[in-house]
Computed example of a mutant assay.
Amino acid sequence: MEKLQAALAKARAQRDGEPISRGGRPELSARAKSRRIAESEAKDSVWSAIPLFEPTARRMQQSRIFSADASNEGTHFDILRTKLLLEMRRNNWKRIAITSALAGSGKTTTACNLIAGFGRQPEVRCMLFDVDLRRPSVAKFFGATPESGLVDVFEGNVPFAEQAVRIHPNTIMSMTNRPLRDPSQLLSKQQTAETLDEIQQTYQPDIMLFDLPPVLVSDETRAFLKLVDAALIVAASDTTSIAQVDEVEREVSEYTNVAGVILNKCRFMDEGYGYSY
C-alpha cells in the first residue's frame, strides 16, 4: 500500500511539473509556491475588505466573553475550541451549529467565546453567524449596533461584505440587528442555502459557526440544520433535563451529526463548564 501511495504521489508530481524529493514526497516547485502565495494573498485581500469592529474590554467582560485573551476564566472555552477544531479536521467538517434545548442554556455565550478564542489562532479563519433570528443577541454581547443584519444578506438586499464585521484579522461575524417574527420561511428558502454557499466559496473559512435557536422552542432550527455538517448542543445543568437532552440529540441527529454536548452552569465544577463527546 505504501509503495502504491508513493507511486501515485510521484505521478501527481510529474503531472504538475513538480520535482520529487528523496523521501518520495513531492516538493513544491517555484510555480506551485507562487500559486499558493497568490491564492493566500487573494484570500487575505477579501478578508481585509471586511470592516474591523473592536468591542471594548468592559463589554466583553460583562458578556462573559473570556476567551479573547489567555486567562483562567477562558480555559474551558480554549479546550472546547481545540477539541472542536480537531474533530472538524478529522471529519472534514466546515459548518457547526450551536443550539440547546431551551433558552438560557448559554449557547450564545459559547458561540461568542469560540469566535473570540479562534481570534487567537491566526492560522484558522472562522466566521460566526447569528441565526437566532427571533431573539438575536450576538450584537448585544459584543456591544455592536449594525445598520443591517443577516436577514438582509439572506434576502439579497445587502452584500455580505457590507454587512459583516471582523473582530480579528481572521474572524468575521454576521450579526442580526432586529428580530424576525417567522424565520423558518426565510431559512427554508433555497436562496439562503445558495447565499451561504457563495459566502463559503468566496471567503473559504476553515470554520463557520451558527448560533441557532433552541430546538424545543421553535421549528426554524430544524429547517437550518440540514445546511450544517454537525451541531454542538448546550445544556444547562440546573434547568435542562436528561430527557430534554436526549430529545434534542434525537432531533438533531435526524438532520446532521451531533458533534457533542456541552454541560453548562455546573455548580460543582470550578468554572461551570463540562463537555461530553
Rank of each mutant, 00 (worst) to 15 (best):
Q163N: 13
Q163K: 15
A164I: 05
A164M: 04
V165E: 05
R166N: 07
R166M: 07
H168Q: 13
H168Y: 05
H168M: 05
P169F: 01
N170T: 07
N170E: 06
T171L: 05
T171Q: 10
I172E: 01
M173T: 05
M173W: 06
M173D: 04
S174R: 01
S174G: 12
M175V: 08
M175D: 12
M175G: 09
M175F: 11
M175T: 13
T176Q: 12
N177S: 14
R178S: 15
R178V: 09
P179D: 08
P179S: 11
L180M: 09
L180Y: 01
L180E: 09
L180R: 04
R181S: 14
R181V: 07
D182Y: 11
D182S: 08
P183E: 06
S184E: 13
S184V: 12
S184W: 02
S184A: 15
Q185V: 13
Q185G: 00
Q185T: 14
L186M: 08
L187E: 00
L187A: 08
L187D: 01
S188G: 08
K189C: 01
Q190D: 11
Q190I: 11
Q190H: 09
Q191H: 10
Q191I: 09
Q191P: 07
Q191Y: 00
T192G: 02
T192M: 07
A193Y: 10
A193M: 11
A193Q: 13
E194I: 12
E194P: 01
T195E: 14
T195F: 05
L196I: 15
D197N: 15
D197G: 03
D197C: 08
D197R: 12
E198N: 13
I199A: 07
Q200M: 14
Q200G: 02
Q201M: 12
Q201L: 04
Q201R: 15
Q201W: 05
T202Q: 11
T202S: 06
P205L: 00
D206I: 09
I207R: 05
M208L: 12
M208G: 01
L209Q: 06
L209R: 04
D211K: 08
D211P: 14
L212V: 13
P213N: 08
P213A: 08
P214V: 10
P214I: 13
V215Q: 10
V215S: 10
V215H: 05
L216C: 14
L216M: 14
V217Y: 02
V217P: 01
S218D: 11
D219N: 14
D219P: 02
D219S: 14
E220N: 10
E220G: 03
E220Y: 04
T221I: 01
T221F: 00
R222K: 09
R222M: 10
R222T: 15
R222F: 00
A223D: 01
A223P: 03
F224N: 02
L225P: 07
K226P: 00
K226T: 01
L227F: 04
L227R: 14
